[in-house]
Design a protein around this nucleic acid. Structure first.
Lengths: 151, 151
DNA sequence: TATTGTTATACTCTATAACTATA
DNA sequence: TATAGTTATAGAGTATAACAATA
C-alpha cells in the first residue's frame, strides 16, 4: 500500500489539540485553573510521593510545576507536606475542595467534548475513542518504532 | 449520559501530537527541514499569492515564517517572486526540487504512521481516520460550540 | 491612507545551572 | 556525596510594534 491520500496524522492531530485547548480554556478560567494546574489535579487522583515523580508523569520539568503547586496549595486544592520518613520529600495529595474543583472542571470539559463527539457517527466515534486511548497509552519507544507492516 | 470513564480528549490528543512530532523529527532532519519548513512545503502544493495568506493558512504569524521562507528559497525549494501586478506581494510556489523533497519526506513520514495505524483493528483505524479528518477540517467556531446534545 | 513584507523588540514558556536542606 | 526541592538565569519560540516600499 502506498497511496492513501490522507493528510499526515501529526498535521491533523497537533492543530486539533491546540484548538481543543483553546476551546476548553474558558472552562479552566472559570475555575481559576491554568492548564498545568488542571493536569496536576487530574494526576493527583492517586496521591504522589515526590514532586519530581509528578512532574515526570505529566510531562513537565520539575522546576516547571513549582509555581503551580504553590498556587494550588495556597488555594487549598492540594496538600503538600514533608514526608516524616525523609524530610526532603513532599507528599502530594488532593484536598476535598481540590477534588470538587477538578470534578466540576472535568465535567464541564467532557460535556463540551461529548457534544463534539456526538457529531460523529457511532462507529467513527467508537473507533476514534478506542484508537485514541490505545495510542495515548503507548510508550514513546513503541510509537517511534512500530514493527514494520504496511509500508 | 454522564459516566464515560474516558480521559479528556485534549489530555490524550495533545501529548500524542507532541510524541508524533518527536517521532517524525528525525525524518525532517534527514531532509534538512524544520517543522515549519515542512508545513510550508505541504501547503504550497497549490501556489499561494501572499505570505500573509500562507501564514494564516498554516496557523503561524506572518513574521514567524519569514526566516523559513528565506531558507527554503536559498535552498531552491520554493520560488518567491514579486507579483508584477502589485509589487508589494510575493508569489509563492514550489520548485521541482521542493516537490521532490516534500514527497520524499512525506513518504517516509506516512510510512511510519502507517506502521503505527496497522496496530489498530481495521474498524478502529477507519473510525479514527474518519473522525480525525472530520474534526481537523472543522472550523474553530464549530469546535467551540457544537449544538448541544448528549451533555 | 492602507497594505505587504520586513526588522526590532518584548513577552511567554521552558530548560539549565546554582543553591539549601536533608540524607 | 548524593538527592528533593527551590531559585536564578538563560534559551527557544512566539507575538507586538515600528519601519520601508508600494498601492
Amino acid at each position: 500500500m502506498a497511496e492513501t491520500g490522507r493528510p499526515d496524522l501529526a498535521a491533523m492531530i497537533v492543530p486539533l489539540g491546540r484548538a481543543l485547548m483553546a476551546v476548553e480554556q474558558p472552562v479552566l478560567d472559570a475555575h481559576g485553573l491554568t492548564m498545568w494546574g488542571y493536569v496536576v489535579l487530574l494526576r493527583l487522583e492517586e496521591s504522589v510521593r515526590t514532586q519530581s515523580a509528578l512532574a515526570q508523569d505529566i510531562g513537565a520539568d520539575k522546576t516547571r510545576i513549582i509555581g503551580t503547586l504553590d498556587d494550588l496549595q495556597d488555594r487549598g486544592l492540594i496538600e503538600r507536606r514533608p514526608d516524616p520518613d525523609d524530610r526532603r520529600v513532599r507528599l502530594l495529595s488532593l484536598t476535598a475542595e481540590g477534588r470538587r474543583v477538578r470534578d466540576s472542571a472535568q465535567g464541564a470539559i467532557q460535556a463540551r467534548e461529548n457534544r463534539l463527539l456526538d457529531r460523529l457517527s457511532p462507529a467513527d466515534r467508537e473507533g476514534f475513542l478506542n484508537a485514541l486511548q490505545f495510542l495515548a497509552a503507548l510508550p514513546k519507544e513503541e510509537l517511534a518504532d512500530s514493527p514494520g507492516g504496511s509500508e
